[in-house]
Computed example of a mutant assay.
Amino acid sequence: MAKPTYFYGIHAIDALLEYRPLDGLSLFVQQGRETDSHVQAIMAQARDNGISIQPTQKDKLTQLCGSPQHQGVVLNARPLGFADEGLLDTLAGREDCLLLVLDQITDAHNFGACLRTAVAMGVDAVICPKHHAASLTPTVAKVSVGAAEMMPIVSVTNLARTLTKIKNAGVFVFGTALNADAKPLHTADLTGKIAIIMGSEGEGMRRLTTESCDELVYIPMSGNEHGNLQSLNVSVATGMALYEINRQRTLAAGQA
């Protein structure tokens, strides 16, 4: 059994207690924060699920979770697990399936921010490789403000093989890249069953991942005359790409 870990932050803990309350073990609450309405709500959830509550000094909370950004609450709980890969078969059968693929996103803050945007923009699942990718750590949970608990995250051994599998199920795969073969994102048809791949900031998508794409797109940027601006932060780029996808799909639904 996986070793319990310490989750922190009001939104992350609130989501954990909502979606998997049986995984909570002990709640540590900063002394003096018991009157905060958000903290009170979390304490009520903990009591309802038989989770012990322990008043704790602020410094001790920081020590437990390894961060001063705990907002007065730390929850000792079982780690968050990845979704079963078989879920992709079900999702790929939907007419309007939307998958976000994160290729070699290793920074926990970027990963968490991408998950937060994915939930907001209606993504059905996030796919990432098992290696060279951020794990589902408490930091990811905190940055995602609870989205890590809401969004199915599928970790796959062979990303190229997984992309081939979903393509065979009718999912059109877009890859983001800054090269001559890519077209502006807004000119692509982003409706229907699609997956969009975001690569790492430094190297972008790997070669096999790029070769698995049906079409390459890029986010047009003005301002290059002011400097050699080559790429955006991956979480920012993900937000921009998913917004355009959401915009097109909302417009298409309104015209149907």
Rank of each mutant, 00 (worst) to 15 (best):
A147N: 09
N168C: 10
V143T: 14
R249Y: 06
E244D: 05
E149T: 15
Q69S: 11
H186S: 04
F174W: 14
L87D: 04
R33K: 06
L242Y: 00
Q40L: 12
M43N: 01
I166Y: 07
C114M: 03
I53P: 02
D107V: 15
E225K: 05
V156I: 15
V39P: 01
I127V: 13
Q40P: 00
A125S: 04
H38L: 11
K193I: 15
V217C: 10
A120S: 09
V101N: 05
G175E: 12
T62K: 03
A15M: 02
Q57I: 14
D84P: 00
T62L: 05
T90H: 04
S37E: 09
V173D: 06
S235G: 04
L102T: 11
T209M: 11
L100Y: 06
V217E: 07
D89V: 13
H11K: 08
Y218V: 14
V234T: 03
R33P: 00
E215Q: 14
P138L: 09
C114A: 02
P152V: 15
R33Y: 08
V140L: 13
L99A: 11
K130Q: 08
A180R: 09
K193S: 12
R161E: 08
V73W: 11
E225Y: 07
N246K: 05
R247P: 03
Q30F: 10
G66T: 14
V29Q: 02
G202L: 13
L163T: 11
R47E: 14
T106H: 07
D124E: 07
C114V: 02
D107H: 11
T5E: 12
G86W: 13
A177L: 11
V101E: 07
G227D: 11
I42S: 04
D124R: 02
G112A: 13
N110P: 00
T250H: 03
Q255R: 06
A195K: 03
L75W: 10
G72C: 07
G81T: 15
N233H: 12
R207F: 10
H70G: 04
I51R: 00
T139M: 13
T35M: 03
V73S: 05
G175P: 01
S231M: 05
G93Y: 10
T62Q: 08
H109K: 00
Q104H: 14
V29G: 00
D59H: 07
V171I: 15
H226E: 08
Q31S: 07
A177H: 08
L99E: 08
G199F: 09
P220V: 15
T157I: 15
H132Y: 11
A46E: 02
Q230L: 13
M150K: 14
F7A: 01
R94E: 09
T137I: 15
D103G: 04
I105C: 01
G223L: 14
V154R: 00
N246E: 06
E149V: 15
